[in-house]
Design a binder for these strands. Structure first.
Length: 234
DNA sequence: GCATTAATTGGTC
DNA sequence: GACCAATTAATGC
């Protein structure tokens, strides 16, 4: 059992509320799960068995669309919540989730979550803010899908990845994703992503080496989608 | 090295 | 702009 007090994820909602002593009897009930790379820990449509927090690692949240086409809903890393929409008694998860690389998760069952939320209003309030943000993100994503060109959506995806995971010294993203995943996230095909990557490289806006991708000129990239309110996040 | 998987390119609808 | 096919590069064993 990993200790929440020793955890470094200051953005975690549980961690934020540790100062309330009432929370202690619930966090001892959490489960720790280790996922290997590519391992799925939430099956789409399966009965919900609680809420997950990423303790350390990288996760993608997917949803199967019509004709079996996969859509990546979002990515998550340290401190973030997964499975919050299957939360509530007798529900099923509307999404699937799998580890992108080795990932350590914390899991609270529904029962424990319900008790904890009723007992710790500060946590409930933080959760409410989280749901509100999620809804906002979801709405702007719908708008982007409707209004952006494919090129803009792909650029937007790169900027999202950059915001979320950042780049290391060598100028490449701190996450490795196949082209297919960028496509599933941007709502297009692998071939389009590949073509857009190569033209962005020619324009010196992007760099790539094998699977590694990085941003070469962020201000110009942002400029390309500035009309679509990049700032509102997604 | 061989086998499998991912990236790339070209072409069709 | 999606889908399909063929080629090439990368990666696992």
């Amino acid at each position: 059992m990993t200790d929440c007090f020793a955890c470094e994820n200051t953005n975690c909602l549980i961690k934020k509320n540790l100062k309330n002593p009432k929370i202690e009897k619930y966090i001892v009930e959490k489960h720790n799960i280790k996922c290997k790379k590519a391992q799925q820990f939430i099956m789409e449509g399966a009965p919900a068995h609680g809420l997950f927090f990423v303790r350390k690692g990288q996760v993608k949240v997917v949803k199967t669309g019509i004709y079996g086409r996969e859509q990546i809903v979002r990515f998550a890393h340290d401190g973030e919540i997964i499975g919050h929409r299957g939360f509530g008694a007798g529900k099923n998860y509307p999404i699937g989730a799998l580890a992108i690389k080795e990932t350590f998760l914390c899991n609270f069952t529904n029962e424990v979550m319900v008790k904890m939320l009723r007992d710790v209003p500060e946590l409930t309030f933080d959760m409410m803010l989280f749901y509100s943000e999620e809804l906002n993100r979801s709405e702007t994503k719908v708008r982007k899908f409707a209004q952006m060109t494919v090129r803009e959506k792909v650029i937007d995806s790169f900027l999202y990845i950059n915001r979320k995971f950042g780049q290391s010294e060598d100028g490449f993203f701190n996450i490795q994703l196949p082209r297919k995943d960028f496509a599933d996230f941007a709502g297009t095909t692998e071939e389009q992503v590949i073509r857009i990557i190569s033209s962005l490289k020619k324009e010196s806006l992007l760099k790539s080496k094998g699977k590694k991708i990085g941003i070469a000129n962020i201000s110009l990239l942002k400029k390309e989608i500035s009309e679509h309110n990049y700032f509102l996040d997604s």
